Simulated assay, not measured.
Amino acid sequence: MSTQNAINWPEKYTPGTGDNFVSNEVIVAGLNAADLWHYLVDTSEWESYYDNVADISFPQGGGPELKDGSHFSFGTFGFPPLDAQVVEFQAPAPDLPGRLSWTAKQDGKPEERLDVLHAWLIEDLPGDRVRILTQETQIGAPAAALAQERPNPMLNGHQAWLDGLLRAAAK
């Protein structure tokens, strides 16, 4: 029997306590966590496999590869570029999952404020399989509005990101 790892959640972003939460997961054979990691942490790759991201920049320098504490910005889901910061970064290693989480924020009037934690977990599984889990908690009026849309744009958008990540790593 094997146990799968879970996302590490700061209390503020605990799933079910915000205004919007989605979870997407895939498990596939023939790839490993190391194959995928580069395409996830190198933001210069994102637009080549995911069409719901734009205007990626590193206002404080650095990049395009994310690392612990990286500050960056990007546009997604029709929002103006969000200010983001990596809050968890652990490259995958034998018996250790890859972990990447960032917060992303939009300031402004109360009805415009958005506060997000987007987390990724990539782990090798027995039988030459890899598991990719991505989850996001959003807080704020724009998040509450997004949660009411059908079909759910965040659920579908994150699935497109997972699918694109898999295609990029399989090349």
Rank of each mutant, 00 (worst) to 15 (best):
M1A: 15
M1T: 13
S2M: 15
T3C: 13
Q4L: 12
N5E: 15
N5Y: 13
N5V: 10
N5I: 07
A6S: 14
K12I: 14
Y13E: 01
T14N: 11
P15F: 03
P15Y: 10
P15A: 07
T17Q: 10
D19M: 11
F21N: 05
F21K: 01
V22L: 12
V22S: 07
S23D: 12
S23V: 15
S23G: 14
S23I: 14
N24C: 14
E25Q: 13
V26F: 00
V26P: 11
I27N: 05
V28I: 15
A29V: 13
G30D: 05
G30M: 00
L31M: 07
D35H: 08
L36T: 00
W37P: 09
H38T: 15
H38I: 15
Y39H: 15
L40Q: 01
D42P: 00
T43Y: 10
T43V: 06
S44K: 02
E45Q: 15
W46K: 00
W46Y: 00
W46H: 01
W46L: 00
E47S: 11
S48N: 11
Y50E: 05
N52W: 10
A54P: 08
D55W: 05
S57W: 05
S57T: 12
G61S: 07
G61P: 05
G62V: 02
G63A: 01
P64S: 03
E65T: 15
E65N: 12
K67M: 12
K67L: 11
G69W: 08
G69A: 08
G69E: 04
S70R: 02
S70K: 02
H71T: 15
S73Y: 08
F74R: 12
F74P: 04
G75D: 04
F77R: 03
F77C: 01
G78R: 05
P81N: 02
D83G: 14
A84M: 04
Q85C: 14
E88K: 14
F89D: 02
F89G: 07
A93K: 12
P94C: 04
P94G: 01
D95Q: 10
D95R: 07
D95M: 07
P97W: 05
R99A: 09
L100Q: 01
S101T: 01
A104I: 06
K105V: 12
K105P: 09
Q106G: 13
D107C: 11
D107W: 12
D107N: 13
G108K: 00
G108A: 00
P110C: 09
P110E: 04
P110H: 06
E111G: 05
E111H: 14
E112M: 03
R113P: 06
R113W: 08
D115N: 12
D115P: 06
V116G: 08
L117Y: 10
H118D: 09
A119Y: 01
W120S: 02
I122E: 06
I122M: 03
L125D: 11
P126E: 14
R129K: 11
R131G: 14
Q135F: 08
T137G: 01
I139W: 02
G140H: 00
P142L: 02
P142C: 02
A145K: 14
A145L: 09
Q148Y: 03
Q148M: 06
Q148P: 02
Q148R: 04
Q148A: 11
E149S: 03
R150I: 05
P151A: 11
M154E: 14
L155H: 10
L155N: 07
A160H: 13
L162K: 06
L162T: 09
G164V: 01
L165T: 03
L166H: 03
R167N: 08
A168G: 12
A168K: 13
A170R: 14
